[in-house]
Design a protein around this nucleic acid. Sequence first.
RNA 1: GCCGGAGUGGCGGAAUUGGCAGACGCGGCGGAUUCAAAAUCCGCUGGUGGCAACACCUUGAGGGUUCGAGUCCCUCCUCCGGCACCA
Length: 986
Amino acid sequence: MAYDFAAIESKWQQRWDEQHAYAAPNPGDDGFDPDRPKFYVLDMFPYPSGVGLHVGHPLGYIATDVVARFERMLGRNVLHPMGFDAFGLPAEQFAIETGVHPRVTTEQNIANMVRQLKRLGLGYDWDRTISTTDPGYYRWTQWVFLQLWNSYVDPATGKAEPIADLVAKLESEKYLVGTNAELIADYDGLDAIEGQPIGSRPWSDLTQEQRHRLLDEYRLAYLAEVDVNWCPALGTVLANEEVTAEGRSERGNHPVFKRPLKQWMLRITAFADRLIEDLDLVDWPESIKLLQRNWIGKSIGAEVDFAIADGEANDTIRVFTTRPDTLFGATYMVLAPEHPLVASIMTDEQSATVQAYVAEAAKKTNVDRQQDAKEKTGVFTGSHAINPVNGEPIPVWIADYVMMGYGTGAIMAVPAHDERDFEFARKFDLPVRPVVEPPGYPTIRRVKEIRQAEGLSIEEANQRAFEEACDMKQAYTGDGKITNSAPEDPDGLVPPLNINGKSIAEAKDQMIRALERRSRGQAKVQYKLRDWLFSRQRYWGEPFPVLHELDDAGHPTGHVIGVPETDLPVELPELDDFKPEPMDDPDAPPRPPLGRAPESWRIVERDGKRYARELNTMPQWAGSCWYYLRYLDPHNDEAMVDPETEKYWMTGDDRRSGVDLYVGGVEHAVLHLLYARFWHKVLFDLGHVSTPEPFGKLFNQGYIQAYAYVDERLIYVDAVDVINQEGQPAFEVQGLPNQTYTYNGEPVTEKYGKMGKSLKNAVAPDEICEQYGADTLRLYEMYMGPLDQSKPWNPQDIVGVHRFLQRVWRNFVDDEADVLLVDEHAPDDDQLRLLHKTIKAVTDAMGSMSVNVAIAKLIEMNNAMVAMDKLPRALAEDFVRMLGPLAPHLAEELWGRLGFEQSLTVASWPGYEEKFLVEDTVELPVQVNGKLRGRIEVPAEADKDAIEAAARAAAESDEAVSAAVTGKAIRKVIVVPGRLVNLVVG
RNA sequence: GCCGGAGUGGCGGAAUUGGCAGACGCGGCGGAUUCAAAAUCCGCUGGUGGCAACACCUUGAGGGUUCGAGUCCCUCCUCCGGCACCA
């Protein structure tokens, strides 16, 4: 009988399904063994799309399945779950087009994908599967949201704590409330009148309304008016990543506008520091850590307040700078065009120019601004500000190279030491004053010389000296010593501050302290990270578990209460029409689809008051922020997850905290992976989870790429139907040089990219399973190359691994007689050595996720076994065990034929480590003058002397070695234990 | 522009992390089987020279460290990813 993969695979898939073979027991369940260490291996769960999986999707799933099976083999209690991230725009869009409710299509899509996944023989614990759209699931998404809403970050601890604790601290006057709603704990040192710090008040002085507002300022989930990407044609806000570079919606290509809207926000910025620091706790690719660090974008510097010289006396312009040390070099200031002070500080003469510039800037999108970045533009406001350290008035400009969205939207410009400021100063002929002396350049002395020689002013001499030092080509941003500080203030208003000769780091420090003493600034840490815009005007998402209080007239009062936990979930109402409402007017108020829900859903009465439900829904990312926790205890109605269960799966003694291995694509580097870490930290602070980080080890799999073809209009055509000039299907005979391709007789051009629907080059796994079987597909995908690399799908290569499986089959089973070719004779020493070597290599390779190498070793071993007359049983059994994680169906079948009743792929391998991982002898290469001449076998424990002695013996006895040494003296013997011996002769 | 990562046969890729470069697979060539084809099996397959054993060359380019470099250091080139006026 030939290798009948179809029969074998369906037989075993059915059996695994019936037996719930991959169900992992929780503590307290039947079959739970507390002595087994846990191993939690997780895939990034997919979106259940209507077209199902293509062969690129399961790449990561197969890898985790191999690891899961391997770890199970080593005796661990393995949790390997799968679920679906099913809320979101595509389902809704599809529903709008077809009129079928998204729940229906979602369920169909999930069923289809489960079928596809099972067909690949992936050993998931299907009893634990979840879908984010299931009310039993999103009930807990809402619950987590309420945790956020009911928490604040305490300034003393930096941790999330219940908002009730804040109330208690305010009531006991542990905290007073400052003028800007800041919490003041240690008010001993502040100026006080009658024991109370100026400008601060106790909680008891606040009105009900003020208390409400104050708490809302601190909640981790809050409502705020923010600038959002508003797409009137789609009737919804969009996330930045849903907007194209041209400022249009990714779906439908409609214009997108920036506009302020009141939206739910999550205070992720309160965790910015910890999100950076705790990256040190996890085993993630450095590139991903770097991406997150850059995204959070921490800058350490200072805020400095500049008084306005000739405007209203009270106005100050606050700037953020990372270079407070260069404050003496600030020769002008720049405000972003959107800066709120622009209108009040421009002079009458300049107002027309300024207004024109501001209006022009408002029309530009961010993208235009970037494209215009090469040419700086700006206008003078007519006003001046006072440099707080030398009292000098400097002009205030407006320019769009300063962004309102970062820092304070205003900068002090130091053209001598900032490239952008330099460029701007050159263009508008503003003074450039160097205050950092490049090493080796004596600026101060040179300035003096120039002044004496040419009788120039300080300003002019500085300029000249700087031109010499920097060749006037660019700003000097390197290290150096401070110069030019502390010029005298003619009015004597500002005490001189001399920091000349200090290093940049020292000068930053001194400058900040000086600013603090004068109340003109303070140290400040700035982040690029923004708070997370958390609401969408869509139907197919989680409803918010909050209620808006209404007054008697039915208008919102602005007060919000949380829905009690016992009333969760807030289910999505049934709607006949869930379309978002398109509108032409970009300023019209949004009308989210939930506004069309029946009044019985929208309006709630509680304690005699009327409340309106929130009509926005949560964004796509919400459900995926915590799903890895729900897998642990998916049917729990009492809690998100049982604490004991959470502790067991998320903490391990000898392993990393959290999920032991998390595999997914890089595209989630800064969104999902950052959001999930944020939620996890909140849950950690509140005591709901036991680890500070959710994912101990992260692995990014590469993409499967494939050729794609575009016609003359640059539109992708179905790749499978493209033929080359010989009439062969291009998709099967790939990568040939100098080919011409046609589609329906029309010429097309070959491209190359990520496999997927948009390039029309997707290959369905079902086709491959049909033709070669799931084991072949699994093996091929693992064999293509390193898991973290992108690699081309090449159908020709599939036969290679298929032949391997056929060879394995023939090796074990006689084709004609259908009998086993294995008997009880003992393997000889060479065979055993080969087996040990292979198992060691396979183990090492699997451990380092190099599954492709592990497969190569198995092929090598099988090729060696083919040459044997009959397989010794000991060899055969261990070979099948190693094959188990990679080709589980075939391995199960052979295991059964070897006479075992118990399933192989859920069993552990007893005695594995003692049996194979102990090496007693090692083979060392022997070199003569760096050239390999022979090998010696020495005990693994041998010390340097013993190895040297063995090598000297080989120089006498070993033919090749002695030939190389003959006639020459051994001058030196280099011994690297465990590695090599080198005889230096001459 | 800045920050990452990578360059090895005709192709995908190995190389115990400084120790026989090219494992394993594809493709190619030759052979077996077959009326024939597909499938399958066996042998060869980095380059140059040689009938041959063998010799020499070879990991993007150039230099360096070392008994020994694909691997480490410096300079340059190319490709891929991320960020992009972030003060």
